[in-house]
Design a protein around this nucleic acid. Sequence first.
DNA 1: GAGGACACTGAATCGGTAT
DNA 2: CATACCGATTCAGTGTCCT
Lengths: 372, 372
Amino acid sequence: MGVLTKIREAKTEPKVTLPVGQILDGDCVEAMRSLPDASVDLVFADPPYNLQLGGDLNRPDGSHVDAVTNDWDKFDSFAIYDQFTRDWLTEARRVLKPDGALWVIGSYHNIYRVGAILQDLGFWLLNDIVWRKSNPMPNFRGTRFTNAHETLLWASMGEKARYHFNYTAMKTLNDELQMRSDWVIPICNGGERLKRDGHKVHPTQKPEALLYRVLLATTDKNDIVLDPFFGTGTTGAVAKRLGRQWIGCERDGSYRDAAWERIESALPLDESALATMQSRKSAPRVAFGSLVEAGMIAPGTELFDKKRQYSAKVRADGSLESGTEKGSIHGVGKVLQGAPSCNGWTFWHLEHEGATKPLDALRQTYLLSIED
Amino acid sequence: MGVLTKIREAKTEPKVTLPVGQILDGDCVEAMRSLPDASVDLVFADPPYNLQLGGDLNRPDGSHVDAVTNDWDKFDSFAIYDQFTRDWLTEARRVLKPDGALWVIGSYHNIYRVGAILQDLGFWLLNDIVWRKSNPMPNFRGTRFTNAHETLLWASMGEKARYHFNYTAMKTLNDELQMRSDWVIPICNGGERLKRDGHKVHPTQKPEALLYRVLLATTDKNDIVLDPFFGTGTTGAVAKRLGRQWIGCERDGSYRDAAWERIESALPLDESALATMQSRKSAPRVAFGSLVEAGMIAPGTELFDKKRQYSAKVRADGSLESGTEKGSIHGVGKVLQGAPSCNGWTFWHLEHEGATKPLDALRQTYLLSIED
DNA sequence: GAGGACACTGAATCGGTAT
DNA sequence: CATACCGATTCAGTGTCCT
């Protein structure tokens, strides 16, 4: 590649060339120093998360979890991580045009530090976006909530700065509803996941659908996108597909090689690719506990079947209790009847507003209340 | 109300009384100073977000920042907010027990500052939780993504600190799937929304379903919950319903009045409704040898895994023997598989009354037989 | 080929108690 | 303080192999 693009700086500065379509070798702060002021439209950054993992972790079946143990994710303290963050954000700010914008992705380990520093440097937060993973890794030890999301920050250059937002494109992508700040996107696996000798090339490759939405929302055709932590080049591949120009920084040669191979084989956008990016809507699953939480069914409520042969009492966590039997609405119904299975939603009834109703009626009401 | 609960501090300190079931008047930092060290189990905090709203700038204590004489800018406002955050978090940390925990809710305006300061003070993030609003306010001007979520941080007192998590109750509440870090809960409106003369009493009243999940997940019955920004008392109302003790701080008299009225009309749950599914962790421990002693398993019985790849013989003392390998049900299973660990109760099976059963089934039978 | 059983995997801050 | 030992714990998806 190596296409050099001429840009004209503000006022009457001499023309400068930008290394568009190139992966700059080396530390991203050093690499960005070679770029002129106010020259790129968007920065997308996926910095190390500073995970601070302890010992090994095994799944309940005894298999080993292949965690992120790379040296590039190790920092000795928050202070050192903060300095690293200030350094690259400062340089990113310098190369951004006044109406440019910045995206950073992170997890709870690092994103609060990044967000605060970003604000301290004068960036202006426009949204925080939640990437809700449809298939996250479970919490194998049952010690916390399943960590099922990551966070993206989108910021302009300052409170009064202008920025680009393709409102209509987002609304179209979201079935004519305003795009929300929570995005449901699967993690990167299957054919999209880059592998070498059967092993993943990069431990934290991001899904292209995520970059697709970011670039479609906040850049225009031919805009220049800089990714200081290029990795295996997801940003470059999607930029090429969407007709955006890109610059990457990456110090790991094997990542750069994989990125080149990938970007060269990336095809410019066609309609079929667009279709696969559309979010598919499916009916939300409702847990019985949600109805209890929402106050639609009080703990202590008596449930019974249509013939009033059986009864059970609702408990605080959404489980049922009937004699010595305890469990879910389905499980308790099944055991009481001695049946092979039971749909608790249709089996159990309650007195509601003077009438006898199956639980399913309340589920419908709840679904309406949480509809977008 | 005004029930005073006696607590005993660590070591041999004199007994101290806690203002349980009370709303402390005044600034929360001052109010918390009246509480003893290490005395509460949980802090839930919904601090003011009032940053960057344009126009007038108020300090979190309500005093007005004079734009002309103070020559404030966003850096000043962040610095003021940071100091306020450090102050109340420090005091909250002091009154928390060593195995207590803290929750804070916020939006992108303030949560990155809160999160970073929390980490700086030594709190250890356990999860960040996304409250995904099912019915958020749209972005009327079409300039950004619809801001459809808020963020909650859950933190323990430190990296090595213990904390409470009712894993099984959460799993039950979510229809037998692990509870994830993204929670879909409607915003507070309808009958739950407190109104006076047709206007909402508090601008940011939180839904009770949110507090319900927080308290059910991370407190036990009778635990003491402190809310430094009590507002109209959602925390107190849900705590009362769930049989938790509460303390509030609120400087606004009209909010305190509304909170009192609301909490007094809240109905506590009865004992059986309050019950939740208990994890097996809390069941009394049974030694495998006890089953042999009790005659439920005869020495010499052949055990095998589900696939019948391995087998072992039970010995008189409740140990297993397989080839040259001898030891506990866990130890032998672990060595045979070459696994990092093994739960012998679920790994080993035997023929019992014509069927193949895991040892765990016999443990359950034994547990029932020794119940009082 | 279709379908079922099974294996494998993903940015993970993933024990508690007794000695 | 470390060490030993007990024993609790997973969801969605892809790929492979076998029937």
